[in-house]
Amino acid sequence: MSLVYAGMCCHAPGITVRPEQADPELLAGLHAAFDQQRQAIEDAGAEVLVMVSSEHFANFFMDNMPTFSMGIADEYESPIENPDWLKVPKVTIPGSPDLSQRIIGQLLETVDISWAQEWKFDHGLAVPLNFLTPEYKMPIIPVNINCQAPPLTPLHRAWALGKALRQAIDAVPEKVALISTGGTSHWPCTPESGKINLEWDKVLVDQLIHKRKDELLDYKFQQTFIDGGAGAGEMRTSICVAAACEETVGEVLFFEPIPVFATTCVIATFFQG
């Protein structure tokens, strides 16, 4: 069994862009939780980190929008945003092309996933990696789910990807960690930016932690948009990773609304091998 750790984390750019504007206690708690997750990944002996994210039109566009995609490159540039703005270092991050090939080969038996040799990480990956792999030495395999451009990936398909990922990861000898980024309510880059629906976030994270499949797959597109904003579409990434370890109950390491980061920041463990 080669899945050694699974969890979710937040990726709001404000976490690195304007940390000085956050409540210092909350910021310290968030940083401590990221560090706890980093330590758990390292203690699990993970050799590769598969990051399931929702990128924001950095690599994929409406000219050919993949439902799912996985990176297959030797290395990845990060971040695509101005590093002076995002306040994370401009780095080249190692990939794991051979492992990508084997996982994709297995996934394609049941899931139509595209793959990409070129992939510039945006804040969806660059912000969490700044905390989870601060030395940027651990190989990363990025996975994208279309959470941005309607028609979005159906929720049950995100769940199916998670199941297929688990099967594919368990079939390889490498020790693999799996992390999703994003999914709580937010209204990014719109006049409603900064709004947070805390009660909605509580329900969602509880469903994710307990892997309540029927409830997670019952969210409707328009109601989710109204309750959680356009950013809530990113719940697909965490539904995917929850499905990959449906058998275990997770643990919330951090759950706090941080208005200056425009979302409820969440760090959670879904599976510890």
């Binding site: 924001h56 039109f57 945003e81 101005n82 703005w85 941005q148 451009a149 990014p188 880059c189 719109t190 006049p191 930016s193 356009a230």
Partner: peptide, 28 residues
């Protein structure tokens, strides 16, 4: 914004013109 440009793309266009975040939200 009114035309329907997605904010995740529009914010980067505003940044090209060095538009501060608060102004970006205000002009929408």
């Amino acid at each position: 914004y009114v035309m329907g440009v997605n904010g995740q793309i529009l914010m980067h266009y505003a940044a090209i013109f060095n538009m501060p975040w608060a102004e970006y939200l205000r002009v929408m």
